[in-house]
Design a protein around this nucleic acid. Structure first.
Lengths: 193, 193, 193, 193
DNA sequence: AATGAATGAGCTTTCATTCAT
DNA sequence: CATGAATGAAAGCTCATTCAT
């Protein structure tokens, strides 16, 4: 149940083709004709369902973001202890990547720069905030050392993103979720008081 | 002494303008007219000094790579203990980023996909190998825990790359080198037996 | 019924403008903007209907060739006596030139060198063969002298091509077909035993 | 002594490289960089010796034309009987082609259209005149039939040009001069009363 | 809803030519 | 004499987008 199901079959074909191509080749390297070929639809169909190429990217991005926030709420926000927040964060990101690697990559890398500006992304300053909140909780709890919060946050998001990249590049072949516990323990080893 | 000094003044202007724009806007989003404006040269001058836009990207990439390998040799290869390799790696990457953030970003993100194929990059499988060798040394020494080498390598490169990104985005304003010791200690805390 | 009628009006405008310009100025001296002006269409329209400038030239060439072969079949192949083959050949070339001088010139001179390679042309070795077959027939029949076949073939195609050139340059103003009988008789006078 | 010998060695290298390339690839398809490579000289050297690319073509053309006119004078003008004029014409064209095929082709096909306008060429109206004069002489003498002079002229220049083309394309491998007598006899057979 | 013909700005690259050295 | 760095107009082609059907 990873993907939002768009209203019509054709819309779904466009959506999925675009998502895949944006991640594989990059937003700017993907042309409308590319999407036409990949989705097997007409140019007109694309512009009937989406107002522009950028809009298409934005809709996908918003879906990806909504999924991220939903999972973040369930696995991080609603959890009390910082250690469990870290475990939850790692676990949901890896499970999500196993379910829908394209969507996770879309959130990390697949959209045009223009979208970055008016949207939260896990790579952006706002994305950092989400992770920083975990760090702050841990420090307040006394579980984590006192240290530079930004630097500490980089020890949560950095390895997670790097491992998702390695999975994407085919260097890691096992399901990422099988590495979740070990990854969380390394992060905690780095951060714990 | 970060930048290679190309032979002529105009060639240097082209080289530096291209480097900056490729990093800021991305290779594909940077047009030759953009470089013309930024460098204050003519189209013809660019094609006089470089055989194509891709060649320009390749030359920059090779310089960046040569610098990386040189620094890697001096701060990692020529050092014996795994702990010192980690410290050396963090320190040289952060010092390099402070000296020439554009070049470091170029190596990490600035080149066209086409170049990836026939070249080592720190993001690629080959780049991973360099980092994995540090991990292997540490395990053999008995300094590091026994664990998945790829995962452990992600705890070296992941936070480093993430912190360079945060510096690039202006979220970190202090010199990265002032964070080097602390960063290295976190990495070691994560990996040590 | 000289020209093939392409499917759409715009495609036909492109086709005819290109044909005319390729013959008048030469393939390489005709730019896409020239065709745009001459045909009164947009650049995009050209590339919508033809995949490249060379493709446009190739399509025209294939039409010209198909017409040549059709006429050759009807006026030369299906005729028995060598004398009548010569008369048929001269007549159909001159009638064709009167009907559609541009197309005949296109076949003779109007295409880029690249097309020459994978196609029969009246100027090429293969084109020569068609004419040589007439000569061989005449010799076997005993109507023509025994002589160098290539040289004799040059007495059929050489004057025909030269007269079409003179018509094209406006030096000959009368319809070429009015010269067909006389031309054929000169050729036969040269070749007959 | 077919070629004019330009003053300096470098000028000669440019001249010969240009001549060869203009014939092989066509004037417009030959770039100054092509000539630079072929001749092994600098761009500056070309512009030192010739004022422009077109000037280079014009100088070559004028040499070719001067040679043509000289040979025409010696083998056609200075000869009395029409039959001998034809024989002389064929012989000198074929001998010239055997000596310097590139130069003959240059006269026939190798120059830019711009030059055509203010110069005599064997293909042009003026070139036709030279050949027509032979025909007129023959008719006045009573040696040739009475007929359309232009048409009859096409029986002199057409086969000659066609045979030179066939030699250039490598279809004829024997020296053209070995075909001169036979060719002249065919022409005379076509034209004689 | 769906199609694809048509548009034209903008891209990378080539090339004849100039001129300081 | 000779060089080649520098110029910029113009080339072939791509692509997001519009709109009549």
């Amino acid at each position: 149940m990873a993907k939002k199901t768009p209203d019509t079959e054709i819309k779904a074909r466009i959506y999925n083709a675009a998502r895949r191509l944006f991640v594989e080749k990059g937003y700017y390297q993907t042309s409308i004709p590319d999407i036409v070929k990949e989705a097997g639809v007409s140019i007109g169909a694309i512009y009937h369902h989406f107002s522009s190429k950028e809009d298409l990217a934005r809709v996908i991005h918003q879906d990806a973001l909504a999924q991220f926030l939903d999972r973040y709420d369930r696995h991080v926000e609603s959890v009390v202890r910082a250690e469990d927040k870290v475990r939850g964060f790692v676990r949901f990101m890896f499970e999500w990547a196993d379910e829908d690697l394209i969507m996770v990559n879309y959130l990390l890398h697949g959209r045009p720069q223009e979208i970055l500006e008016y949207n939260f992304t896990i790579c952006s300053a706002e994305g950092l905030e989400a992770v920083k909140k975990i760090v702050v909780t841990g420090i307040e709890e006394g579980t984590f050392k006192k240290g530079d919060e930004v630097l500490m946050a980089a020890f949560i998001s950095g390895p997670i993103m790097r491992l998702i990249e390695l999975k994407t590049d085919g260097i890691i072949t096992a399901p990422l979720s099988s590495l979740a516990e070990e990854t969380a323990e390394y992060i905690l080893a780095a951060l714990k008081a």
